[in-house]
């Protein structure tokens, strides 16, 4: 009994401990820059979680990160490190907008479903390229997915300024608008668009898939030891393709939501670095889809607090970058503590 308790307590203590340590470190940093750390934390809390508006501000920023984090977390089960979320978002958004424009008379529900599918397929195919190159050509997936980000952004910019440009989008080259009727609304009673729900649902589905199905079990085996998986007759190549595709689909969905819930068009704002932020979320959540949800909310909160920090303490925007850096360094460092902790306790008990 105490042992299982220890097991549950360990990650909790480590996370709380590392958050405390990083807050102390960041406090020292802020203090040395001449601001009062206690006031800064108070402001950050108010801006991120203090009021219901703050919560909405935080959650709206967290929503895309949940989806882009899956771009890195899912392939992580196979031992792959994919950092191509940005490309998946961009391709998803672009293709979602393009298909919506081909169906001007269809009812919104049909348009939105098609858009979601198109976005997911586009994002999925984009990350699948990285997975396929890895499996069939042994091209390192981290680097290829990074390069694919730049290529996707170039494609987006090229297409929205040429073939698919709405001539009316004068000073901000974009595709045509998908139509107000086709826009996704907000969750009743809030200011949040449905992206948050999609994000949470996607994380839960991903968690169920990876932890409670044969498919997930097979992936974990393949991730642990490719040779053992091959001996056991597991189709490693197919697993890689399917998982990369699912991961990219999550990113593509995030891109589709940017178009369908916010911009109504595809343009260069799709490249908003959600993909890169998602990588950190995935690493800090240790690739666990359920843990992604709170981590994304934490990061969303930090980002939401940037504005008020600037306005009330005249700190530069980079302050929150430093804070994110410190928190994530400490949390990644704390990875080494797992296991040591309970061993110490056991020794103490015996």
């Amino acid at each position: 009994m105490p042992q299982t308790l220890n097991k549950a307590l360990e990650p909790f203590l480590i996370i709380v401990g590392s958050l405390t340590v990083s807050m102390v470190l960041f406090g020292i940093f802020v203090a040395s820059a001449g601001a009062d750390p206690f006031e800064v934390y108070q402001t950050m809390y108010r801006a991120a979680f203090g009021t219901s508006f703050s919560w909405q501000n935080t959650l709206v920023r967290a929503a895309p990160l949940m989806l882009t984090a899956l771009c890195t977390a899912l392939p992580g089960y196979l031992g792959l490190i994919i950092i191509g979320g940005e490309g998946a978002v961009v391709m998803g958004g672009l293709f979602a907008a393009i298909v919506a424009l081909t169906m001007p008379t269809a009812p919104p529900i049909v348009v939105l479903t098609t858009m979601a599918l198109a976005g997911m397929i586009a994002g999925g195919v984009w990350l699948m390229i990285g997975g396929a190159l890895r499996h069939y050509r042994a091209v390192n997936e981290t680097i290829s997915s990074l390069l694919l980000n730049y290529i996707a952004i170039a494609l987006l910019n090229h297409l929205v300024t040429s073939t698919f440009r709405d001539p009316e989008s004068l000073n901000h080259p974009s595709t045509h608008h998908i139509g107000e009727a086709n826009m996704i609304g907000v969750i009743p009673g809030t200011d949040l668009h449905w992206g948050l729900v999609f994000g949470i649902v996607a994380c839960v589905i991903a968690w169920f898939l990876m932890h409670h199905t044969v498919f997930g079990f097979a992936s974990q085996i393949a991730g642990g030891n490719v040779r053992a998986a091959q001996v056991a007759g597991l189709p490693v190549g197919r697993l890689i393709l399917i998982i990369c595709c699912a991961a990219g689909a999550a990113g593509g969905l995030a891109g589709m939501l940017e178009v369908a819930a916010i911009h109504g068009r595809a343009n260069d704002t799709l490249n908003a670095n959600y993909g890169y932020a998602g990588i950190l979320v995935a690493f800090v959540a240790r690739n666990n889809p359920l843990a992604i949800i709170p981590v994304a909310v934490l990061l969303g909160g930090i980002r939401a607090s940037s504005g008020l920090l600037q306005r009330t303490h005249e700190l530069p925007d980079a302050t929150v970058l430093v804070m994110q850096g410190i928190i994530f360094l400490v949390i990644l460092f704390s990875e080494t503590l797992y296991g040591r902790f309970s061993r110490l306790q056991k020794q103490g008990a015996s």
Partner: peptide, 19 residues
Amino acid sequence: FDEEKVPETIEVQKTMESM
């Protein structure tokens, strides 16, 4: 008062509301 480096995404909507 001002806020810098606000991207042209939903973040600017939140910044306006917040102000």
